[in-house]
Each structure stands twice: as C-alpha cells, then as structure tokens.
Amino acid sequence: MFEVIKEVLSEQLGVEADIKLESKLREDLNIDSLLAVQLSVLLENKYDIDITEEELGKLVTIKDVIDLLEAKGVKA
C-alpha cells in the first residue's frame, strides 16, 4: 500500500519530495487541501472505498493514510 500511495503521489499528483511512512502530508510533502482531496479521490477509486472529508481532515502522515485504508478493509 505504501508503494501504491507513493506512486499515486509522485506519478499522478506530481509530488517531488522524498516520500516516507513518517512524511507529513502538509509540512514535508507540500500537499495542500486540493492535492489532499485529489489523493483521497484516487485512492477511493482504486480501492472502491469512501473517504469522508472528516476522515481526510485527520490525516497528518503517510502512515495515517495507510492506517485509514486498512481500517476500511483494504488489504496490502
């Protein structure tokens, strides 16, 4: 899942920073609210899940994203 998220961020959303599990979406990866929404939408589409705006608002790091996907039943 980390590799998928990394690929989505770098290949599809143009994030150039070095992406690690502990990377903070806003501070380290410069992911603003628009990019965060785009990331969530791409992950929703890929895994056939729904991510609410409230859930999106609570994500701080890449690990948080993975934890959320796992909580929604997405398998690694």
Partner: peptide, 10 residues
C-alpha cells in the same frame, strides 16, 4: 463541496 464533486467526476 469540492470532494464529492471530484469523487463523482472521477
């Protein structure tokens, strides 16, 4: 509501 619009578009 930007996110629902984008989700539906995708």
């Amino acid at each position: 509501k930007g996110k629902p619009i984008l989700s539906l578009c995708v």
